[in-house]
């Protein structure tokens, strides 16, 4: 039910919508070339580059495949690969 003020009580609830379906190309990270600079992580508009203890992975549930990470990677460690359904 819509409240009088149009409140949304649950924060961060857009996570229910998986925007990964928008994607044409998906990023593939080659960790052997990665220098842990964090460029892909800081520029990702969809919070889809996950960084933990120097290891990087892609959250394909939300990645829209824009390709910023691949373009901004200084070592070319991220490759954009055509998504096969």
């Amino acid at each position: 039910m819509v409240t009088l003020g149009g409140h949304i009580k649950e924060t961060g609830s857009t996570t229910k919508t998986k925007t990964g379906g928008w994607r044409t190309f998906k990023p593939v990270i080659h960790m052997d070339k990665c220098v842990d600079c964090g460029c892909c992580w800081i520029f990702c508009p969809d919070m889809s580059i996950l960084r933990k203890d120097g290891e990087y992975s892609v959250d394909l549930e939300y990645c829209k495949g824009c390709g910023i990470c691949s373009r901004e990677c200084p070592t070319g460690a991220i490759e954009m690969v055509l998504e096969e359904k």
Binding site: I42, G65, C66
Partner: peptide, 20 residues
């Protein structure tokens, strides 16, 4: 970059265009 907070207060799944 490592000094930047890890906490994500803006959630994924928003409807922004790719590359916004």
């Amino acid at each position: 970059v490592k000094d930047v907070s890890e906490e994500e207060l803006f959630a994924p799944g928003h409807r922004g265009c790719a590359g916004c």
